[in-house]
Amino acid sequence: MKKFFALLLAVVMVLSLTACGGSGKTETAPAAETAPAAETAQASGTAETAEAEAWKPTKTINIYMTHGAGGDTDYMGRKLAEALEKVLGVSVVVTNVTGSNGATCMQQYKDGDTDGYTLIATNTAALTGNEATGMVDFGYTAFEPVAVYGMQSGENIVVPANSPYNTLDDLIEASKANPGTIRYGISTGGGVYIQACVLTNIGGAQFNIVDVGDGAARLNALLGDSVDATSLPYSTAAQYIEAGQLKSLCTCLSKAPDLLPDQRAASETIPELVIDTEYVVLAPKGTPANIVKALNDAILEATSTEEWKQMVNDYCLQNPFVLNVEDTIANLKEQRDLFQSFVPFL
């Protein structure tokens, strides 16, 4: 008995010793390595751009994906990783760290290693939306944005094909005529929620707002006559529109997707109703500017191929949409300002 406890104690002590040694090392080692690197990089980044652009990755780059496999954000991220591997000559590994509409992953890696080998891939609706709805207390400024590299095919406001409404105006006017009788399906807290808030508070619509859930669930509810109108990703609704079961009133993008130019935009009715969901790559805060620039260049190069254009045309119904670092930041700022202006009524 005593021997047993003695052994146990010994094991525990050995474990804790290794732990102390271990954690001590891991804590100090990267700090020691990165601090001077960051300093020199910043110095060189501002002083001599020629030297700065010489940053080249030499080992595996890890991209942490905020959304799960099977979704559009994941697919675009993996396609980008594939293209980047060819340009950079190192492996680019995508790992899904999911939960809370991407907030878990962003929280976990926003203060990650700043050596350029840790990147985060997400979409802008999650990045700015989570901040606007108050789920997290940080936005794009908690990161070093690397590049916006694509535009989603967007959300459309849809109704069943036999519905009397043909435009967004019809729908809003009808709701004003009979307040609280038109059931409008949303997913509370996400981009669709923001959109419903704009419809109500700026557009003056008086729907009976009903939470239904994600895109597939909203489709289910619309088909099952549990709601009268809702917003669906175009990719989900496309086939039903074609089959004559659903009718699209408008897209919530600022302008119709490049390959579907004939759609009306919601902003024609309500100028503030613009939800442009873009795919974006971020680096942890403090990643040196030269590394960000080098990565952005690599992304620009990787997405300039005919293959990429084909893929984006097929999958997003858009033309390639890739921005350099300055434009990326400007774009994110614009979107954040818009979303923040909704905060009072979210």
Binding site: L8, A19, G22
Partner: peptide
């Protein structure tokens, strides 16, 4: 106890 130590230290020790 051993299981707790195992998961508690996995992150730092590996």
């Amino acid at each position: 106890i051993s299981l707790t130590i195992y998961v508690a230290l996995m992150g730092s020790v590996g």
